[in-house]
Design a protein around this nucleic acid. Sequence first.
DNA 1: GTGGTCTAGACCACG
DNA 2: GTGGTCTAGACCACC
Lengths: 126, 126, 126, 126
Amino acid sequence: MLLKLDFADETPIYMQIRNQIVLGIANGELIPGEKLPPIRTLAAETGVNTMTVNKSYQLLKQEGYLITDRRLGAMINPARVPEQHPPLTEHPALKLLISELYVDGISKEELLAACSKLYDELNKGE
Amino acid sequence: MLLKLDFADETPIYMQIRNQIVLGIANGELIPGEKLPPIRTLAAETGVNTMTVNKSYQLLKQEGYLITDRRLGAMINPARVPEQHPPLTEHPALKLLISELYVDGISKEELLAACSKLYDELNKGE
Amino acid sequence: MLLKLDFADETPIYMQIRNQIVLGIANGELIPGEKLPPIRTLAAETGVNTMTVNKSYQLLKQEGYLITDRRLGAMINPARVPEQHPPLTEHPALKLLISELYVDGISKEELLAACSKLYDELNKGE
Amino acid sequence: MLLKLDFADETPIYMQIRNQIVLGIANGELIPGEKLPPIRTLAAETGVNTMTVNKSYQLLKQEGYLITDRRLGAMINPARVPEQHPPLTEHPALKLLISELYVDGISKEELLAACSKLYDELNKGE
DNA sequence: GTGGTCTAGACCACG
DNA sequence: GTGGTCTAGACCACC
């Protein structure tokens, strides 16, 4: 799996790494139990400070996406417990996003079609 | 319209103000052409510095949500030109959001139902 | 002559009025000796405060574009003495403008063609 | 690169800084990828508040002249996408400028010669 | 009265 | 050490 980082982007680098790994898990590119590269390796490959990669791994671990085994290093959590969600209609980010799209003239059909398509693209291997 | 700010939240205050106004526009609470409170008033009401509110207004203006009529002050842009969107299926934030929800076990039906409901709630006045 | 003002524009209204009158003089729409509408009339027509129009007229008078006769009101100065210019190559605004266009990839030919065309369009009646 | 600010000038300081950097890019004094001084340094050197310099950088970033690499700070955007221009003959500032010069008796030849010279002086290093 | 600009500090997130 | 955010107060241009 290849990480694409944009150092000029406003989202922090550690968050970009975290996001890409989450995306990788969702679309099946990273499978539960798969080993992730050691922090130093990933840092060297991406030209990022080890501390930054470390922060990403810590965050992913805290969110349950990752587990670290002392002997094997980091791997995708094979037994993740999904987070408890309040009703989706209260999800602040989703609400804001849909509001922005609505104001930009996106129709309901377009929105639902895109959501459906994006969802279907996930984990094609299933 | 009442703004609710959370000073403990990590999202910057100026961004919270911006977000709430965008939400207000989307759900019809703020109508195009409507006058917004002067920077100083809003600052006093929310207990925030004028510079912070100023920053929000600047951002909203830059995004086209707001205009400042030199005679009357700030108002919701009555003739906003919607932003050009690349296909929604390439929208990074939407993609990430759906991925996170998917990994958390949200079903496609739940997702679409929530999006549909959120969309329908917007601009009830229409 | 019709003034088009944009109250949301960042350039002050009095300056917009001044600019449009200068443009009118340059393109021959306003001819030397021509009477300008009284301040109050212009203010009413454009929906602007009389003080604002007054400021425009004062500025134009100070720049020599306008003279006011107590009996006849304001008119385009029929005997304007052109301002003394330092060498054009030192003109700060021109320098900045050309720099911006250059950085935006405008070729020298495009620039000169546009300048030539714009110049030729002025005072067609001559 | 040395910035010359005129505190008596009516153009805002942050805009003067912005203008000088744009000029520097155009004439080749600042090359794409070159690192700019940190906000604090530039503020100290010019005797201006950090917030003011910050505002300049924000503006330059928004205009695409500058990027801030999260690791290295601010630098001249090495991959700037030129802005889309409507036909130059519709450029309001250029139109106004030429009109003013025309009314001041500048001949077409003088104008074109100056534009040509100014353009040729840009980016001598090329 | 309106927004726009600026100052002199301070704190924080990021790398 | 870097930019990003915020405060408390001030002054100014514009209308």
